[in-house]
Design a binder for these strands. Structure first.
Lengths: 236, 236
DNA sequence: AATCTGTGTAATCGGTGCTTACATTCACGA
DNA sequence: TCGTGAATGTAAGCACCGATTACACAGATT
């Protein structure tokens, strides 16, 4: 374990009495930070964006907020708690963007809406790779410890399942097993997002520019594959 | 940045002269460790298996080898270098297992061999999730800095591409775009592996017991979807 | 036997999360 | 108006980590 996590040390020593800071410029810096909690979250979000989840440190967030290293612990009991809030923020943005994209999609045609969802999903994941990573992996924070993340995530997954179930009911999926289609669709989209995140796409000859087009292509391929009897031609 | 990585500090102080350890049990513990390098690698592999890539620390590996914290640096210039070797070991095992499985598969029938490869891939990934993570993500070590990992990985990817290309040449893929099929296949398998790794499968109602069966099912679904005109029924 | 080379130890630095004791400020009530 | 207590900041310190340096020791070579 690199991070001590739960080490209850004993033995503190009383600090030296500090001379009162009598003489101070009155408007220089107020003792109380306006909204330190919010500033810390923003700093942490920025750190995630710059260097990934690993780059988030309480001290660095405090440094950027112009505050002492111990101050953040008044607002977050631990680094993990800070990460939880960051994850909630990311998950909230993710869901909002997908639902916005879906609101623009025409109703009816469940497979078309599924495609639209997949595109929005991948677009956000590729535009915010490090934030996507936090809410994807259980490594950086535990989904179960945040009701907000869990419910937002369940909502998105439920949306996907519902669309494919509607397509199934409408007879668009032929005789295929619905659950298998749902999981395969999920795996395909999630896999492409992770391939981008993990830097695999260049190996496959897909540059940053072509990534979004390729995402649309494989979604179309998938839809054509599961659709009951679509024209087999691809290469749209 | 949590891990300082490249901080060249200045100013060392000469250590106090140490009294020679004259009296010591001769056979208790030899000064030189038999093969510290190998033992450190094994310890690191074990740490990865226990707590994931993050749990690997030079000090802990040294501790398990019964050696001082500085000793490992005689064999590995940095923690990353140790991780590189661990990744090479994992990648080697991964490739060996897949090639062994493929050797048992009947020649001819490229799609059948692709299925076999996918099964072996997922089986290993699900049996060794933490080791799989090291060689999947660029987060824990840089693939480009290890020729061994790069070539092993390229070999596996090339194998996959070749099998699908053979299927394409044999007319088994209809008019579909080969490259799209290759990337979609990759994304599907990789996505399922990562879903398992990231703990998403329980959310989809797939327990540890059903995971392998489900892996086979979605591979079959994919193959049925891309095959030129297979019977549309799934549920094998 | 002397020496060289490889390998392990001890001590130290700067970074991290986390805790405690103390200081300061603000809001509320008598 | 003036206390007073809660909220929130600072200072100091611990244990852990990776990494470096000076030094001690062992085995092989000459």
């Amino acid at each position: 374990m690199r991070r001590p996590a739960k080490t209850p040390p004993a033995g503190r020593r009383p600090a030296m009495p500090r001379p009162p800071a009598a003489a101070r410029a009155p408007a220089a810096k107020p003792y109380h930070h306006g909204d330190l909690r919010r500033v810390l979250i923003d700093a942490a979000m920025q750190l995630v964006g710059e260097g990934g989840p690993e780059a988030v440190s309480v001290r660095e967030a405090a440094r950027r907020a112009g505050v002492s290293p111990g101050a953040p612990f008044r607002h977050f009991p631990s680094r993990d708690a800070l990460m939880n809030v960051v994850a909630e923020e990311a998950q909230r943005r993710f869901r909002a963007e997908i639902e916005a994209a879906l609101a623009d999609a025409p109703p009816g045609d469940p497979l078309g809406r599924f495609r639209c969802l997949g595109i929005a999903y991948l677009r956000w994941a590729m535009k915010n790779p490090t934030h996507f990573e936090i809410i994807s992996s259980r490594r950086f924070f535990d989904h179960d410890r945040s009701a907000a993340v869990s419910s937002d995530n369940a909502e998105l997954i439920g949306l996907t399942e519902r669309l494919l179930a509607e397509a199934f009911s409408a007879g668009q999926l032929g005789m295929r097993d619905l659950k298998q289609v749902q999981i395969a669709g999920r795996a395909l989209v999630y896999g492409f997002a992770r391939m981008h995140l993990d830097g695999h796409l260049p190996r496959w000859g897909v540059g940053e520019a072509e990534a979004e087009r390729m995402a649309a292509d494989i979604l179309d391929l998938f839809i054509a594959g599961i659709a009951s009897r679509a024209a087999p031609s691809a290469k749209v």
